[in-house]
């Protein structure tokens, strides 16, 4: 199997996952209590008005027809309306997504670099005091949920030290310092647990590789330790870390909802929570689709990266 076939297969898989998820999301939203027409007209609307609106919105059509209409519209770029805010959903989501992406990118970068870096450090200092301290800290970070860190961070840095703003968001136009000061705490809290997670995994996979026959063979060939570590060990040790980073991208999205709520940060997570609270079902549907797509894409990218680093997937067939 060549790289092209691999790519094709994964792309088809990606489309399949998105289609399947769209059915699920559509279905779940329709099981939720609440009625779009009531949500628009208010609780005291007359049954006649509700019926009229339902007919207008096509809510009386069979579910598959509604689903098809919704999917078709999305594929044509029509993401529908937020019925509560009476605004098109697309720009609402785009704006929130942009702010969330800011959090996610910084947090993810911190997770990838910090997690892998700490993992490698621990693996090469196996059994020493620094490794043991790191291990302890990592378990603490993994075990304690992020809302705890979020509240602690607000108490220490915002209320007590008064160094950083506790909540909210400032656009870049108000100055870099102000913009960044609103990002620091959410990003740190978001990254905390995941750094620990990734570094644990990197440590164990690096240790496994360092104990492998081919690393022994590389040393036996008299290669300097630097070469053994960076050329022979690292690429193999990173493979599992990449898979986990993709899974962590999913955890990150979950974390964003929590962190944005605690820090009152106007991102996609908060928008979704808002849509759920206000029964804004069209907005909720589209928002969830966007989240799903991001997660599926992250996994797709991880698989590609994995294939690039792993010749057993990239290069096929026997030559001798």
């Amino acid at each position: 199997m060549g790289m092209a076939a691999f790519l094709l297969r994964r792309l088809l898989g990606l489309v399949g996952v998105l289609l399947g998820m769209s059915v699920l999301i559509f279905g779940i939203v329709h099981i939720l209590p609440g009625n779009v027409a009531y949500a628009i007209l208010g609780e005291f609307a007359t049954p006649a008005a509700v019926a009229q609106l339902e007919a207008k919105l096509g809510l009386n059509d069979p579910l598959p027809v509604q689903y098809w209409r919704w999917l078709g519209a999305m594929l044509h770029g029509d993401f529908g309306m937020s019925i509560v805010m009476q605004r098109p959903a697309a720009p609402l989501i785009a704006e929130a997504l942009g702010r969330s992406a800011l959090l996610a990118v910084f947090a993810f970068g911190l997770v990838a670099m910090g997690g892998i870096g700490l993992g490698l450090y621990a693996a090469t200092h196996r059994g020493r005091a620094s490794d043991k301290v790191l291990t302890l800290a990592q378990f603490l970070l993994i075990a304690v949920p992020e809302f705890f860190w979020a509240i602690l961070a607000v108490l220490v840095f915002a209320s007590w030290l008064n160094l950083l703003p506790a909540t909210g968001y400032a656009p870049l136009s108000e100055g870099v310092a102000k913009w960044a000061s609103h990002l620091v705490l959410p990003v740190l809290v978001l990254a905390f647990g995941l750094v620990a997670h990734v570094s644990r995994l990197t440590r164990s996979s690096m240790i496994e590789v360092l104990d492998s026959r081919y690393v022994l063979a590389a040393r036996a060939r008299g290669l300097p330790e630097r070469k053994v570590l960076w050329r022979h060990a690292l690429p193999n040790a990173l493979l599992p870390a990449i898979t986990v980073l993709a899974i962590d991208a999913g955890l990150l999205i979950g974390g964003i909802v929590v962190v944005e709520t605690v820090f009152a940060y106007p991102g996609l997570g908060r928008l979704l929570v808002y849509a759920i609270e206000r029964h804004d079902l069209p907005l909720l549907q589209v928002g969830m689709m966007v989240v799903t797509a991001i997660y599926a894409l992250a996994n797709f990218v991880a698989e590609l990266l994995y294939a690039v680093l792993n010749p057993r997937i990239r290069v096929a067939g026997a030559t001798a």
Binding site: Y214, A217, H232, N236, N310
Partner: peptide
């Protein structure tokens, strides 16, 4: 099989 690095040519 185990003494050759799978990631290098």
């Amino acid at each position: 099989a185990a003494a050759l690095n799978p990631a290098l040519t």
